[in-house]
């Protein structure tokens, strides 16, 4: 077999796989649109759901998802930022630093159900905090921590060394250096990280299923120990009622909204990432 034949085979294989993935993605998206769009009506986003999710909208479910995501990021961001700055600005290059970096990558690849399980055991069983939005936010916060860390560290490390040196040469102390050079210069990278973290949290169901969410009977949480309804749980519960066409239809609608949310976050992350590239080329 000569090189040209080999190349043709490889090309056909890569092309085929790419086509397959694209087709699959297209299939999922088009199904979601075909089934979801008919359910969407003017009030879908802003109405309370009724009749055990078979009618009405998904307002409180969306709110619940946003609360969990938002609080998770608020909890996670300071920790991620602090640990990145500690690693990049204070820790000397060496085995320990490499170890920490590897650890973040491993955590980032850990199946989310494990976070849910550990969170459930820790909070739900040992600490007995019960099923609540606080528990869910904490678990999500831990879950997105590596995502945030990786993105923020990449942003900070992409910062040209010359800026650090220029600041150092002017006699700036390390905290001033961080506050005046590192943070502003890697701002867009950080935003990208937060958005990707949010997208990851939005897509998560397993980890919050038994620890933070409920299907019905609650609107907005009134105390720290209340659970919240979320889009993810809503979809899952409705989809299990396969016999009921209204439930299934509502599930598709909620799915479309959730996808829209994730898509929006990813798009924003992408836009910000483009700006990062522009900044670093200055």
């Amino acid at each position: 077999m000569n090189e040209i034949t080999t190349e043709k085979i490889v090309l056909a294989f890569i092309g085929g796989v790419t086509f397959l993935i694209a087709a699959l993605l297209f299939f999922i998206l088009s199904t979601l649109f075909l089934k979801g769009v008919p359910v969407l009506h003017a009030g879908f986003l802003f109405e309370e759901s009724g009749d055990f999710g078979r009618a009405g909208g998904i307002f409180y479910q969306s709110m619940g998802t946003l609360i969990l995501m938002g609080v998770a990021v608020l909890l996670s961001l300071p920790v991620a930022l602090g640990s990145v700055l500690f690693q990049t600005e204070y820790l000397e290059t060496g085995k320990f630093k490499t170890f920490l970096t590897q650890l973040t990558y491993i955590l980032n690849a850990t199946p989310t159900i494990l976070f849910g399980l550990v969170g459930y055991l820790l909070f739900g069983v040992y600490l007995d905090t019960g099923v609540s939005w606080v528990t869910g936010s904490l678990i999500l916060a831990v879950m997105i921590l590596p995502t945030l860390q990786v993105s923020i560290r990449e942003a900070v490390e992409a910062l040209p060394e010359k800026y650090r040196e220029a600041g150092m040469a002017l006699g700036l102390s390390r905290p001033t250096q961080i506050y005046r050079i590192i943070l502003p210069q890697s701002f867009y990278g950080m935003v990208t990280g937060v958005l990707l973290g949010l997208a990851r949290a939005a897509g998560e169901t397993a980890a919050i299923m038994f620890t933070a969410t409920t299907f019905s009977g609650i609107r907005l949480p009134q105390s720290f120990s209340d659970p919240v309804p979320t889009l993810q749980t809503h979809i899952l519960v409705l989809a299990q009622e396969a016999a009921n066409p209204e439930s299934i239809a509502q599930a598709w609608g909620a799915g479309l909204v959730l996808l829209g949310l994730v898509f929006l976050l990813t798009l924003m992350a992408w836009i910000f990432r483009t700006r990062v590239v522009m900044e670093s080329e200055l």
Binding site: K162, A169, L170, G171
Partner: peptide, 13 residues
Amino acid sequence: YALRRKVGIIFQK
């Protein structure tokens, strides 16, 4: 930090 304020450096680029 005080030393670097006292001894300034200009780089090649």
